[in-house]
Design a protein around this nucleic acid. Sequence first.
DNA 1: ATGAAAGCGCTAACAC
DNA 2: GTGTTAGCGCTTTCAT
Lengths: 331, 331
Amino acid sequence: MAETAGVSIATASRSLAGRDGVSDSVAERVREVAGQMGYVANVHARSLAGGPTTSVGLVVHEIGDPYFAEIATGVMRVGASKGLTVQVCHTGRDPDQELTQIRSLIAQRVGGIVIAGSGFVDPADQAEARRDLKAYRTLGGRVAVIGRHHLGVDAVLPDNLGGGRSATEHVLELGHTRIAFAAGSRRLTTVADRLGGAQEALAARGLDLGRFPVVEAAFTREGGKVAAHRIMEEDRRTTAILALNDDMAIGVLSALRSRGVRVPEDVSVVGFDDIEVAEDLAPSLTTVRLPMVQMGEQALSLALLEPASRPRRRTTDHELVVRGSTAGPGA
Amino acid sequence: MAETAGVSIATASRSLAGRDGVSDSVAERVREVAGQMGYVANVHARSLAGGPTTSVGLVVHEIGDPYFAEIATGVMRVGASKGLTVQVCHTGRDPDQELTQIRSLIAQRVGGIVIAGSGFVDPADQAEARRDLKAYRTLGGRVAVIGRHHLGVDAVLPDNLGGGRSATEHVLELGHTRIAFAAGSRRLTTVADRLGGAQEALAARGLDLGRFPVVEAAFTREGGKVAAHRIMEEDRRTTAILALNDDMAIGVLSALRSRGVRVPEDVSVVGFDDIEVAEDLAPSLTTVRLPMVQMGEQALSLALLEPASRPRRRTTDHELVVRGSTAGPGA
DNA sequence: ATGAAAGCGCTAACAC
DNA sequence: GTGTTAGCGCTTTCAT
């Protein structure tokens, strides 16, 4: 390609990479020729020769989950602004798969890795990932996580505790006492933290979380359905269901409708996250808003910063958004 | 790392890649050591040296759009089964951004590229992409597209025409005559094709699409809201709205609710795609099901096949799924 | 079964 | 401002 343009490969390289040391006219012509022939420099060779990295990785649990989609939006926004390609990887909530994806990212020597989504309460579940990431960082790689602890890296922490507290206080203030929780696996720190907040709110009124039904199911719409059915079968006098994320809440809403239970007249439903579609549901969903897009932005920004001696933390705020899915009991 | 294990780099390479020509014991030990130190072979060097590609690219319009998320699921499923990493790229429906992403994928010499999502009616809009992809294929790259024509490569084509026809026939059979369309930009082939199907159904009854309101807005939930408001303002006697994808249909439902219009009593709503959440909406959405996951699977499978002399095509079927959002006019 | 050596296509440092 | 050259870290012959 360099010869087609009649220059040395060094000049071609400089022209295409937009470095200086080439006259504008020559650079222009080289780009012209490259454009003509659809030539694109080989990233592998470029990277191997010590060129700058041009991509970063984002690891999410479920690429189809709006929670992660919004985080991805934030990560990509920052990436685009710095000319970085974002490689999105999907784990399906499988720790083994997660490890595979992280390794693949490391093998590609991406400039940074952002890992989004709940980790596991038991640190053993991610010991290997932790070790690999450490080795990666030793080699100059940057890592930031969203919503998980125990990994010893920069982290953006959503206010799961506070949000769980606010959501619970809301239904308590509405006068509900027959409250149930539709939760994901308690092995997930996100679930544990959100329940922790609920526990705090309950304790403030002299109540104990242990005395309320907490149904664990998949942390998805489908899981929400399963949980709602089980909750209503266990105690049909339940008047409020707190779903630990919006996806489950959608499933809860759907299941209640199919049982002929009215929301919010018979049962109030609260979600968590405030994914975009929450306000378009019928009834619109009362939920706890987390700034997902911003979390994504912060995470990549953190990862791209000069490494600090100690892990940095950014804690987000949260906001209770009251909509149509909650009302007083017997309203 | 090779020296830590006490072998030559050639042996280390063979061991880690799982090639043969190494005694099991030695290979085992090498992997052991690599695991210990968190060593992962540099993909760039490997690829540059002629090793096999381990990643493929998927280009989507909107990573947060369930339509693409389901396609991505299918692509990843096939990718995982072949040990391939799927790099997901997001274009935000911007042709320039799309070109950038495609180039980045080519620069990374991915083993294959799947491009999902509507192309543009005007071939000029993708002339550059087409040329780059051609050069890429000349160098041995594989390409398959989902839902777009004019690119001269293997394609999986959803039955947009038939689906548009079925959806329109459905409301016609229900007795509606005051029908309006909430569409995305007509420059998108998907929109043009789906409207084409509607036109066919209308023509079969001696009607002409040109006499029905077709409101163009963003091909998103937000666009659906805008379109619904405009439709109802133009003619409040409208009794059926056909949204050209489910995302818009959700917006339509939301807008109608905010206007106090009942669905399906006052207005029937039909979507298109049958994204998972469609059945969990209130009312549940009547829509046209497209096998998105399967489309993703087919697309990557096609791309990975030996290149054929002529582009291959796989046309999907479709299925009208009647749920709660449609009924006869004045029901 | 293992090691030595020649590239893969670039970038960076150095000549001119 | 432009060309020359030495690697980057692997895989792959070809020896041994």
